[in-house]
Design a protein around this nucleic acid. Structure first.
Lengths: 215, 215
DNA sequence: AGCTGCCGTGACCATGTGGTCACGAGAGAT
DNA sequence: ATCTCTCGTGACCACATGGTCACGGCAGCT
């Protein structure tokens, strides 16, 4: 979508523009985001922005593309976790999402913002890409879901649903205001999240399995 | 906040204005909402709207007031449920929220919209009012939380957290697109929700209690 | 009929928006 | 030195926004 001119720019300058756009869109949403502020932040002139991109929407879509690419990269299919229990996998996915939100806070906030604007045309596309990513990540899992472990009447999709709800609330509550830069005691807080998450996943696990999994 | 002029208007006209504002704000959020469209929808002229309300924000705050009043009324303290198990109460609260969202879809969407704009000044106020409502509703519950029922290391606040996450996802998934008017087979779908909700609450209950509660 | 006072009107204002375009700086070629 | 061509500039445009205000209609009084 961007013009060749843009793609021939030094990476640093491309980065400036993308970063400024990400921030502006993340903070204000699509409509309220101002191209004036973007060019100001990116230290370029108004005119050239619209030589690089056809219009505001084109810029937005490009930034969406970048964000999704980064997101997908955080879930490389080749090292999807092997597991003996689907809950290992659920935990791994959640931790990767959290790690992503800490390593790419701007992109994360950008995507979260989009998720709050369902009326916007790209909403469906972005959400599809995101769920597709984790679903592709779980492709092998689907086939291996152990039958008979769940209490009668329960389906794995219900389990996934409740886990997804919980982890979303978890992410929002614990990392709602992430700084732009990575925190210094990153690993320490990461470990705390790890433990806390275990508590909640264990609740659901005990709630859905026939017999209690040994701790 | 509105001028006496407005309050002396026939109720029907007041209703027109409030309804038009609710819809415009619910659909577009505060910033994107257009007073031009509001006066158009409400069939009044631009000038008089700003005689009734000092400015856009004042109108918005008034509408917020109306919405919150309606919400609070949906949780009358006098008939807070008596219970032998906090989960009865959790279920009752959730069902009332769902019922409210079906009986006042416009107001519900309006409040949901606000909940998606944390940067807006009224966000905190609205969220506080909402949580205060359910908390006041549960005042007696807090004192009566049965000790010793939870597995060691678990706290009730963790249980409430996970239930809140689950029920929010539940509401969003099942009633994301509610029509403006109440559905005709209202009670039937309400019963379905009832049953489905039981499944999820039961999962959490089994997950947090020491021994399984008899079904 | 004439006067008064209030309510509602919509053209109008300043401001900010997404987007344009005539201009100029400067590098390379001759 | 001059020409050319590309890239970047920022004043500028039409438009939509929240908000204003001189005006007119009209009910009630004298």
């Amino acid at each position: 979508m961007p013009s060749p001119q843009f793609l021939n720019l030094p990476m640093e300058k491309q980065g400036q523009i993308v970063q400024a756009s990400l921030r502006e869109f993340a903070e204000n949403g699509y409509d309220r985001a101002s191209t004036n502020r973007i060019v100001e932040q990116a230290r370029i002139s108004k005119g050239v922005l619209f030589k690089y991109f056809e219009d505001k929407e084109s810029l937005f879509l490009y930034v969406v593309e970048i964000a999704l690419k980064a997101y997908v990269n955080a879930f490389p299919a080749e090292d999807a976790p092997s597991f003996d229990d689907p809950f290992h996998w659920l935990k791994e996915v959640t931790m990767r999402k959290i790690r992503f939100s800490q390593e790419h806070p701007l992109i994360y906030r950008f995507l979260v913002r989009i998720a709050k604007e369902p009326e916007h045309p790209v909403y469906a596309k972005v959400m599809d890409a995101i769920t597709a990513t984790t679903q592709q990540y779980m492709a092998q899992v689907a086939a291996l879901l152990p039958p008979g472990k769940l209490r009668d009447g329960l389906r794995w999709e219900q389990v996934f649903f409740i886990v997804e709800c919980m982890t979303r609330g978890f992410r929002e509550a614990y990392i709602s205001q992430i700084p732009d830069a990575v925190d210094e005691n990153f690993e320490a807080s990461f470990q705390r999240l790890h433990d806390e998450l275990d508590v909640y996943l264990d609740i659901i696990k005990r709630g859905v399995y026939k017999e209690v999994h040994q701790q």
